[in-house]
């Protein structure tokens, strides 16, 4: 039994059955009801209704300015809603905060900040630690294991300004892992990362899903959606459609989401067609 696990009160890495039990309940992981969010007078999300099912990999898709980031941020209470509400496993976010891990966009922080990779991952434990207490050996060993799961254990002592884009993203994901949450909200986890990192990340996301956790990720590459995700949320100010990829990710829905941006659209439709016909 490792130090970190004893702090959390469970054995080693939780088995997927244990995790499934911990992250499942009578209520859906995320329930968004009539959510409207506005900056000044300009609405960026209008009347969004969404119920997210358990243990799925979910892509949030839409053109620039469609409100994808806003949706994630208003779920974790970073942006106040003008109307509507969000519930996490049937209760307000405030009471369920410990069940949700948020992974911001990579560019949202100053990567020249004087701190090491391990320190950033340790930040994931700050919520559990509460006021004043410093992370100890238990937290350190937990953080190391999170880095190992992302394959960057050797970077632990590195100053964060020396990381590549893909490594930065892995550090952020390791930090979220350290939170040991049931719901992971990720803002563009694949943006600007190399192919190896992309594979590593999607593998990790699948692991999380198989442990019964729910992952909601803003995603831009329409071509990889059928391959990577189970579910898709199409967003453009309003909710266009949400559901299993096979049902919802249709050319008609994409047309409604993206409007005139035809180039991406034809490409995506092409991918869909090829999938349906079973071609590579």
């Amino acid at each position: 039994m490792t130090q970190a696990a004893s702090v959390r009160g469970d054995n080693e890495e939780p088995t997927s059955d244990q995790r499934k039990a911990a992250c499942s309940g009578p209520f859906p992981p995320i329930e968004v009801h009539d959510l409207t969010v506005a900056y000044q007078t300009r609405p960026v999300l209008w009347d969004v209704d969404l119920v997210v099912p358990e243990a799925r990999l979910i892509a949030v898709v839409g053109p620039n300015g469609a409100g994808k980031t806003t949706l994630l941020k208003s779920i974790v209470g970073l942006i106040p809603a003008s109307a509507g509400w969000v519930k996490i496993y049937g209760k307000p976010y405030r009471e369920q905060r410990h069940l949700v891990a948020y992974v911001p966009q990579r560019a949202s922080v100053d990567w020249d900040f004087p701190t090491s990779v391990l320190d950033v991952v340790l930040m994931g434990t700050y919520g559990r630690l509460g006021w004043f207490r410093r992370p100890g050996r238990a937290e350190r060993s937990l953080a190391r294991r999170c880095l190992e799961r992302l394959g960057i254990a050797d970077l632990a002592r590195r100053q964060i300004s020396e990381l590549s884009g893909g490594q930065q993203q892995r550090v952020f994901l390791a930090r979220a892992l350290a939170q040991d949450a049931c719901i992971y909200l990720m803002d563009e986890p694949f943006a600007g990362v190399d192919a190896t990192t992309e594979r590593a990340i999607i593998q990790l996301l699948r692991q999380l899903r198989d442990q019964g956790r729910t992952v909601l990720a803003v995603h831009h590459d329409l071509q990889t959606i059928p391959e990577y995700f189970d579910w898709v949320v199409l967003l453009n100010l309003r909710l266009i459609a949400a559901g299993p990829v096979a049902e919802v990710f249709t050319p008609a829905n994409l047309q409604r989401t993206y409007g005139g941006q035809l180039k991406i659209l034809t490409q995506a439709a092409d991918v869909l067609l090829r999938r349906e016909e079973g071609r590579p």
Binding site: V76, G77, R97, V100, P104, T115, M123
Partner: peptide
């Protein structure tokens, strides 16, 4: 370092 993340941690 990351005020929004701090907020989500409570």
């Amino acid at each position: 370092f990351d005020p929004e993340y701090a907020q989500t941690l409570g």
